[in-house]
Design a protein around this nucleic acid. Structure first.
Ligand code: ZN
Ligand code: ZN
Ligand code: ZN
Ligand code: ZN
Lengths: 133, 133
DNA sequence: TAACGTTTGTTATAATATAACATTTTATAA
DNA sequence: TTATAAAATGTTATATTATAACAAACGTTA
């Protein structure tokens, strides 16, 4: 197996590092803020790195939150089948890795016969912690 | 059955009307642009109407597009179980109404035992038209 | 009427994201 | 190695999406 990390550029590694170390989803401008000491000065530099990292499946965008999260799924080399659980109270986000779910959705056919290349699913509710408050 | 339309305020009706007449998803600032002759001048007036319309299930937000679409599902009184098919070429968006899918997702349980109140699913691919080009 | 919740109007500003252009670095291959 | 193409960078400016804060008006119900 080829380790893609070695192929990442400087900016891409810096941005990935921040997202991987974070405890939850990270916002683009929070990343920008964190890296201004490391030579990245402009939003575009962050967004370009984010785009690439998404493309190669290292991170995902949590669409409903405009935030980014590291991929925890070793099989998920491209972000074409993603599912997340999102706590509406504490905003904790967890990537759902569930082969039954992904098989079900990958093979889903709608009435129009449209064939899907990609899906993104977001579940909302209360996590264990917040439920018991 | 109670017709909620009668309960809508002036701004809410104006905004809903535009979204229902549109052929595809509509952006907030495009709505704002369209209604400036009708006495709505500020983004907030549009966003407030959008929020309410989402809350009562008249429209949905297509998260990956930051756009809004009228609900076609007569059963869907609240936006707590939504699925869309999105063409990556022409940006056509269709709400998927499929009881098997919604039953499957409503009863989905992840490993943490978190119980979900709401989900949103977006499928991406090419529609019939764009596939055959 | 009084009280309450909802909606409105308005100004300002925050947060998220891309356009356009010049340059540099890296990979590929003649 | 040198040429060439592809990818990444740096920079300035701008576009797009969304909310804060406050005062006033409206609609419902007690
Ligand atoms: Zn993943
Ligand atoms: Zn929580
Ligand atoms: Zn609907
Ligand atoms: Zn299409």
């Amino acid at each position: 197996m080829v380790h893609k990390l070695e192929n990442l550029s400087k900016n891409q590694q810096i941005v990935l590092n921040i997202i991987e170390k974070a405890k939850g989803p990270v916002k683009a401008y929070s990343i920008l803020n964190d890296v201004q000491k490391k030579g990245i000065n402009a939003p575009l530099q962050v967004y370009r790195a984010l785009d690439k990292l998404i493309k190669i499946g290292k991170i995902h965008k949590v669409e409903s939150r405009n935030a980014f999260i590291a991929c925890k799924n070793t099989n998920c080399e491209v972000s074409n089948a993603t599912a997340f659980s999102i706590c509406q109270a504490c905003e904790k986000v967890t990537e759902i890795v569930n082969s039954k779910l992904s098989k079900y959705l990958k093979s889903f056919q709608d009435s129009t016969g449209m064939k899907y290349k990609k899906y993104n699913l977001e579940f909302f509710g209360l996590c264990q912690k917040c439920k018991s408050k």
